[in-house]
Design a protein around this nucleic acid. Structure first.
Lengths: 208, 208
DNA sequence: CAACATACGTACATGCATGTATGTCTTCGA
DNA sequence: TCGAAGACATACATGCATGTACGTATGTTG
């Protein structure tokens, strides 16, 4: 970290406004969706005008793609990485559930759901990027599920991919609807995942 | 049923076009959401023009409200009613899960999710109606959960309302993401609900 | 069958959000 | 220190979807 207070260099300045715009856009996307998102408001809530926004991003689409990338990175860092440190597959899946619930309190996890409603399955760059991210997550879940089944901690049943899809959707839906009702959101997120997997979580009853 | 084939009376004609428009709008809403829904396309896919649409509905908002009401009625008839015939609370909840999954194959269940993304929590008539429907469902779920807990078939845990919210969201999210992958969607919907409740379903998957 | 109402199509007006072009000020490199 | 480039604001042009006004044809009622 260099000295940044007195006179911010241009790169820093640019980076600051960029993240401010990204955060504002993420809030807007999760609240209103892509179609209803108005860039004037995004810029103003970040403390700028549309001029700054169009200076940083080519157009609305590229802004949305950047937000998507940003949220994915955040997810990988705050949910994916902790889960990766678990050795037991089931434990890893449950850690992901809890982490996702916690992340959702910051209402950034709704971005994916919002964009999915509007672009899922369409021939559109946002839709494709969305499915790319989703596919990566599903792939990871499938590996964990298969590992758990080989290990015997996850019972056999429907194809692992179906379980993975159900987990991503069910988890997102549940925590969004719970709207960050701590502390139940974590427990219930865990229960959704455990239920789909067909395992019984240790469930301390009173979250400990 | 009167004779309708030779010369449709005006009331019948009107009713036909109205449901055609409603169905088209429902598809459009679940695919694109409210903001991206273009009425020209809605009308054309139903075989009419925007003139017919504006004759049947005051404006876009009223159309969306009518769609919402229509989907709710469909849900009550095809999912709610069968569940109401079950005496055991847990059985009723699981029947609802399966029914919801089946309903989702017709991609009308996505309507609520799509509208929720854009209007949830906002001061808007669609948002309010959405929450009204949601509140009714949650109330019903809460009653079933409480009954099950008194009966002992559902273990104690977080507030019943939190469970109910998690069920609605988790169920919707899971079946939407599964996108009607029969037959797994039914089983996994059931597992989501069972997981949230903290019960173990009989699980005919491995047909014991 | 005549007068009227209803179902629907067509044409126009309006608003609003996006994207672009231009201008101003600050920072950077030589 | 001076010119160039970057960061951002302002002003303008364009497109597109909504809503409305009007026209037409098909039923309906006396």
């Amino acid at each position: 970290m260099e000295i940044t207070s007195i006179r911010p260099t241009q790169a820093e300045r640019s980076a600051r406004t960029r993240s401010a715009l990204l955060e504002s856009a993420a809030r807007g996307l999760s609240r209103y969706g892509y179609g209803n998102l108005v860039l004037e408001q995004v810029a103003r809530e970040a403390g700028y005008t549309r001029g700054a926004l169009y200076h940083q991003f080519k157009d609305k689409e590229e802004l949305a793609l950047a937000v998507l990338e940003w949220t994915d990175e955040t997810w990988q860092r705050e949910v994916g990485a902790p889960a990766a440190r678990e050795t037991d597959p089931v434990a890893a899946l449950l850690v992901m559930a809890r982490g996702h619930a916690v992340l959702c309190r910051r209402e950034i996890a709704r971005v994916a759901m919002a964009l999915r409603v509007e672009f899922s399955g369409r021939d559109h760059s946002i839709g494709r990027e969305l499915e790319r991210v989703q596919a990566g997550l599903v792939k990871r879940l499938v590996r964990l599920i298969n590992a758990g089944r080989r290990e015997g901690s996850i019972p056999p049943g429907p194809p692992a991919k179906a379980l993975a899809l159900a987990i991503t959707g069910g988890l997102e839906g549940a925590v969004i609807t719970l709207a960050g009702q701590a502390p139940h959101d974590e427990l219930l997120a865990e229960r959704v995942v455990a239920g789909v997997l067909g395992v019984t979580p240790r469930d301390p009853g009173v979250t400990r």
